[in-house]
Design a protein around this nucleic acid. Structure first.
Length: 1036
RNA sequence: GGGUGAUUAGCUCAGUUGGUAGAGCGCUUCCUUUACACGGAAGAUGUCGGGAGUUCGAGCCUCUCAUCACCCA
């Protein structure tokens, strides 16, 4: 049966993949030797909304290479697949679908909306898993996990409850990154800072009571450059709309310009004139003297830097915006709010966080405006009032200097870093809200130690530095999201009686340091002692307590116990409510009897990364004690993009140590983002996206995979181009043709090809080369140098097997020596088999197809055994040297022929001068193939070369091609002289080194020996060349 | 502003404890020779970003400058 001309990837790949699946080749433990070590890789779960892009293709290919390699080596392997529920991304997809029907999320109940998402998932989710099969990824699909599965949900809730009980999780009012589009908090990592064109406005804050001071500016030498009397302090801001929430103006403590007015009050120049708020001028290290005016307005609730300043100085933080980042429209009239605020600023009234949070400092004229509209309105109002700092406008168009230049407001145009939501692409608003946090400081140490102590290795090493830098400065992790799709936080709040039996309102702020410590004590000792918790009763008449539990029932049990302890009666009726407890009391009054005890669950869901942090063990059935968990946890290698080192890798490290008390894997292989051939990020707008599936259609999965492997240099930039993929498709065809060569020569293909006992130099040589490449490939894969493995296999297959071995075998295969022929046939089949085996992890499809051409095989290639022979066993040094000599001679003859324009087909005679015994035997052993490949007619021994002879210097003798008439003497002299010049440089270097006593003293012996040997060889070659030039010169 | 990395052939990139530079693609010339034109043969191209230092010896180590990229402010 004749082979097809090329491998038809399009039709073969699905057929082969189906065969693998049918054979259970990807199941955990396939091809495992008895009592084998395990090798586990957890697939970084793609978003359930995801499609296979080139980054996945790269990432998954590397994992598949390792898995296939380890499986063939007989490890007990598991490649665990799965999908991430991807909170925002998934909710967004379904909301978009609703929008097409003219519906909104809020048209549905939470339950109904979540049901819609599950519906969507059943139909469209997880497309990527089918796409993964196209690139040959062999995962244990039956084990595919989903971060919203019931068992996974159990794991998430259990971890939350445990961590809560250990005091690792707390709720607090903090400044968070608020996404006004999705109306949820997001983590720092989900914010992209992008530099945009922006403006900086300069405004005057008048000093209270019309006070004035001497404002003096000096240059570097202390000379006065400006002196004027001012009744204001100028501030510069990029966000005028937040002026309404200012709590102070800060200057640097060493700033002499403002020293006279520190401690004084100034007026926020916006809002109704009668209620202008006065705020203090304070000092803080934060303002930079040279930036803007050197004075910074402090708006603690809407800026991260200001937040720190405000916390340090006890400045109130007024929240100005609603969840859509529009100016607040709730609360009391501005007049009343402003009066209270003023009392606070004057120190006449105490305040607490909750009180400040409730106050709306937005004057009526701005209420309800979008933040950007509000910005314009504020600027206009201030400018109209003459409180903008003014500067001279640009000259008139005719360029003449006017007598009275027009004065315009001072607005600097500059680049401003602005935070954007990575999903929503809208400007993130810092907002002061109640959120849940993981106190990462408490769980970070084991994760740091793992890497510090080398238990977990990050590759490339630079990743470790980045890892340390981030984890050593880690911020609390905000884990609550105001979404519907996700794991809802398992915390209920319920009404409980006070110890004295009365009903009061008791709010514990576990966010601040003191009460958190107390809270921990409380948890350790007595759940019921609210005094230990540092709680305090307020006037509201409602006492509530927080209950963290794995289920509603457990929460109710906890609540009931509190009631039992305090009232002596255990209640059994509960009333789940969704509204604010205050509203509940409006409805039911203060008597819960008959209605049940009011309780409500925190509506927020957990950050997606909280659940994916549990991936390494959640996928194996934890918290259940499954055999898989015992066997495959902890895993071995994590392969993932550098971009999620913090998002995911660091969190898995922390969570795994916190929950399992073990590191989740011993090696983290980080790679960069996949870029296009020019190094640009791929994006739809740029139009430079390479679709891996299109590449698979065009060139086959193997070509794409080989390209991926070949690119995967540690720490390297990943630039992919179609030309490259095409090149490796050609490589596949080359391999294919090696087999069609074997078919053509009718070499038996039993399928049972064992290592032959070789007598022929040629066969000894290629067997040795095979052993060398096996060692190279294993060494490369052991150290995750996929590129080295791929390149070694490419060079072996094409450069050794196809270019030389197959060519060399032709005379034997067509020759009369039956023993030599049989040996060569057996060797050839064995070598080709080895190539298939070693190439299989990178190019699984074509190798499996070629493997299947044999008459019979014990197994599919995917579960064939990986070789273990070594170069030490199989390399025959003598055969090695001889074949290299032969290859060298052929190369030189070919080169000389081409230089002299000898027709390719013409056979020419060869002469040799002074051939030594070794050279003679090398020639004798291989004359047939040298003559065939180099197209040599005869070899004659001569004492002197004839006239017009091209010289070929070789070790052990000088060969010559007598080409009288054909040879261009001056050109040949030029060619030889060029070689001599090149040699001269090398000789110079070698002699320089060897003549340097310090080199001989300090260099290692083998280096010196090598240099000496090299020098001798080069000198011999130089002598041969010079003699040749001399002969030619006589001719000319 | 802080951090990390990069700068090597026309292009894209390798180069593993310092021993004197490689691959693929592209390019030039020749060849349809019985595995393969998705091929074969031959060939050209680099003071390894600049400068300084350590060393017998530096693409590799140190310092410095320049440019670029990414991450974090």
């Amino acid at each position: 049966m004749a082979m097809d001309k090329t491998f038809d990837a399009g039709s073969a790949e699905p057929r082969i993949y189906a065969k693998w699946e049918a054979a259970g080749a990807f199941k955990a433990g396939a091809n495992a030797k008895p009592d084998a070590e395990t090798f586990t890789i957890m697939l970084p779960p793609p978003n359930v909304t995801g499609f296979l892009h080139v980054g996945h293709a790269f990432n998954h290919t590397l994992m598949d290479i390792l898995m296939r390699w380890k499986r063939m080596q007989g490890f007990d392997t598991l490649w665990q697949p799965g999908l991430d529920h991807a909170g925002i991304a998934t909710q967004l997809v379904v909301e978009k679908q609703l929008a097409e029907l003219g519906e909104k999320r809020t048209d549905y109940s939470r339950e109904d909306f979540i049901a819609k998402i599950w519906e969507w998932k059943a139909i469209s989710g997880g497309t990527i898993q089918e796409q993964d099969k196209r690139i040959g990824a062999g995962m244990d699909w039956d084990r595919s996990a989903f971060t919203m599965d019931d068992t996974f949900h159990d794991a998430v809730i259990k971890v939350f409850v445990d961590m809560y009980n250990k005091g690792f999780i707390y709720r607090g009012k903090r400044l968070v990154n608020w996404d006004p589009h999705f109306e949820t908090a997001i983590s720092d990592l989900e914010v992209e800072n992008i530099e945009k064109d922006g403006h900086m406005w300069h405004f005057k804050y008048p000093l209270a009571g019309g006070a004035t001071y001497d404002y003096v500016e000096k240059d570097e030498d202390g000379n006065v450059t400006l002196r004027e009397t001012r009744d204001y302090i100028a501030i510069a801001t990029t966000r005028p709309e937040t002026m309404l929430g200012d709590g102070a103006v800060a200057v640097h403590p060493t700033d002499e310009r403002y020293a006279p007015i520190v401690g004084m009050l100034c007026e926020i120049p916006v809002g109704p004139k009668a209620q202008r708020r006065l705020i203090p001028i304070i000092t803080d290290e934060y303002p930079e003297k040279d930036f803007g005016s050197g004075a910074v307005k402090i708006t603690g609730a809407h800026d991260f830097n200001d937040y720190q300043v405000a916390k340090r100085a006890g400045i109130p933080m007024y929240n100005l915006m609603d969840t859509k980042a529009a100016m607040r429209a709730d609360g009391k009239p501005y007049v009343e709010e402003a009066a209270i605020a003023q009392a606070i600023a004057n120190g006449e009234q105490t305040f607490d966080e909750a009180m400040i949070a409730a106050m709306n400092m937005v004057p009526e004229e701005f209420r309800g405006l979008d933040r950007f509209e509000a910005r314009k309105a504020v600027i206009d109002a201030i400018t109209a009032e003459g409180l903008a700092v003014m500067v001279e406008g640009p000259p008139n168009e005719d360029g003449e200097v006017c007598m009275a230049p027009e004065m315009i407001p001072y607005v600097e145009s500059k680049k401003i870093m602005q935070p954007f939501g990575d999903r929503s692409k809208v400007v993130i608003e810092p907002m002061l809200t109640d959120q849940w946090y993981v106190d990462t400081a408490q769980i970070v140490e084991p994760a740091l130690d793992a890497v510090r102590e080398g238990r977990t290795k990050i590759m490339p090493e630079s990743g470790e530095k980045v890892y340390f830098h981030w984890l050593e400065n880690i911020e609390p992790w905000c884990i609550s999201r105001q979404l519907w799709w996700g794991h809802q936080i398992p915390v209920w709040t319920a009404q409980v009686p006070t110890l004295s039996g009365e009903v009061g309102s008791w709010k514990v702020n576990v966010g601040d340091e003191i009460s958190r410590a107390k809270a921990k004590k409380f948890l350790d000792n007595d759940r019921l002692d609210e005094k230990a918790m540092g709680g305090r009763l307020t006037q509201g008449g409602l006492l509530t307590m927080e209950f963290c539990a794995a289920s509603l029932e457990e929460a109710q049990e906890q609540i009931a116990e509190v009631w039992l302890a305090r009232t002596g009666q255990k209640p059994s009726l509960f009333s789940e409510i969704n509204t604010d407890p205050g509203d509940w009391y409006l409805n039911y009054g203060h008597s819960p009897e008959g209605k049940g005890i009011p309780m409500w669950r925190d509506p927020d869901v957990l950050d997606t990364w909280f659940s994916s942090g549990l991936w390494p063990f959640g996928t194996l059935g934890w918290p259940n004690d499954t055999p898989e968990l015992a066997k495959y946890f902890p895993g071995d290698v994590l392969i993932t993009g550098q971009d999620i080192l913090f998002f995911w890798v660091a969190r898995m490290m922390m969570m795994s140590n916190a929950v399992m008390d073990e590191d989740p894997f011993h090696t983290v292989y980080l790679h960069q983002l996949m870029r296009d051939a020019k190094g640009e990020k791929m994006s739809k707008t740029r139009g430079n996206v390479i679709d891996p599936l299109v590449m698979v259609d065009e060139y086959g999965a193997d070509a794409l995979r080989f390209t991926m492997g070949q690119m995967a240099a540690l720490g390297g930039v990943l630039k992919i181009s179609e030309d490259r993929i095409k090149g490796y498709r050609n490589f596949g065809t080359k391999l294919w043709n090696a087999f069609s060569f074997a078919e053509h020569y009718e070499i038996p293909n039993s399928g049972n090809h064992t290592l032959p006992k070789a007598e022929q130099t040629l066969n000894k040589w290629i067997i040795g080369e095979t052993a060398k490449v096996r060692e190279t490939v294993d060494a490369a894969l052991e150290t995750y140098r996929f590129n080295d493995a791929a390149n070694a296999l490419y060079a072996f297959t094409w450069g050794k097997v196809c270019d030389w071995y197959l060519e060399f075998s032709k005379p034997i295969l067509q020759g009369e020596d039956a023993a030599a022929k049989a040996e060569t046939e057996a060797t050839l089949r064995w070598v080709l088999d080895q190539a298939l085996i070693m190439l299989h992890p990178i190019m699984p499809f074509i190798t499996e197809e070629l493997w299947g051409l044999a008459d019979s095989r014990d197994t599919l290639l995917v579960t064939a055994d990986w070789p273990t022979y070594t170069a030490a066993d199989l390399v025959d040094a003598e055969a090695d040297r001889e074949m290299n000599w032969v290859i060298n001679l052929i190369d030189s003859v070919r080169s000389a022929r081409a230089q002299s324009h000898v027709p390719a087909g013409a056979k020419v005679p060869l002469v040799v001068m002074g051939l030594d015994a070794k050279g003679q035997s090398a020639w004798d052993n291989n004359s047939a193939l040298i003559q065939r490949i180099a197209r040599i007619e005869t070899l004659n021994h001569v004492d002197a070369f004839p006239k017009g002879c091209v010289t070929i210097p070789m070790e052990g003798g000088t060969f010559g091609l007598p080409l009288a008439g054909l040879i261009d003497v001056p050109a040949e002299i030029a060619r030889l002289e060029k070689s001599v010049t090149k040699l001269g440089k090398e000789l110079g270097g070698l002699r320089g080194r060897l003549n340097n006593p310090k080199f001989v003293e300090s260099a290692p012996e083998e280096v010196i020996a090598e240099a000496r040997e090299n020098l001798a060889l080069r000198e011999e070659e130089e002598a041969q060349l010079k003699a040749a030039i001399a002969r030619l010169a006589e001719l000319g």
